[in-house]
C-alpha cells in the first residue's frame, strides 16, 4: 500500500517541521526556521492541516477518499505527488 511505500521513502515531513509551520487561511505557508514560504490550494491546505494534527497517512487517505470522488489509485498517485512537492518545498534550497 501507498502508506508503507511513503513511510519507507520518508516522504512525509517530520513532525517538528510540520508543527512549526505558520499556515494562513489564504493558503500561504511560512517556515520560520528556513524562511521559506510557498502557497497551497484548498486541497493542499487541508492535507497539510490534517498532517499537522495527525501525521498518519492511513487516516489521511481514509479522509480524502470519503471527501473526494476519486478512485484509490488516482488518490494514491496524487497524494504521492503532493507529498513529494511538499517535501521539496520544505527541504529546498
Amino acid at each position: 500500500m501507498i502508506d508503507a511505500v511513503i513511510e519507507e521513502q520518508s516522504l512525509l515531513p517530520d513532525a517538528k517541521t510540520l508543527e512549526r509551520l505558520a499556515i494562513s487561511e489564504s493558503g500561504f505557508v511560512f517556515d520560520p526556521v528556513s524562511g521559506h514560504s510557498f502557497t497551497l490550494n484548498e486541497t493542499g491546505l487541508e492535507i497539510l492541516r490534517t498532517l499537522q494534527k495527525n501525521r498518519h497517512l492511513g487516516a489521511l487517505l481514509e479522509q480524502l477518499s470519503v471527501e473526494y470522488d476519486v478512485d484509490r489509485s488516482t488518490l494514491d498517485r496524487d497524494l504521492l505527488e503532493f507529498l513529494g512537492s511538499l517535501r521539496d518545498q520544505l527541504l529546498r534550497p
Binding site: P32, V33, S34, G35, H36, S37
Partner: peptide, 18 residues
C-alpha cells in the same frame, strides 16, 4: 535569510528567521 540578491550576491530583500 536572503530573499533576493544583487548581481554581487548582496541581499536586496530578506526575512527574519528563528
Amino acid at each position: 535569510r536572503k530573499l533576493a540578491l544583487t548581481d554581487k550576491g548582496k541581499a536586496w530583500a530578506g526575512v527574519t528567521i528563528t
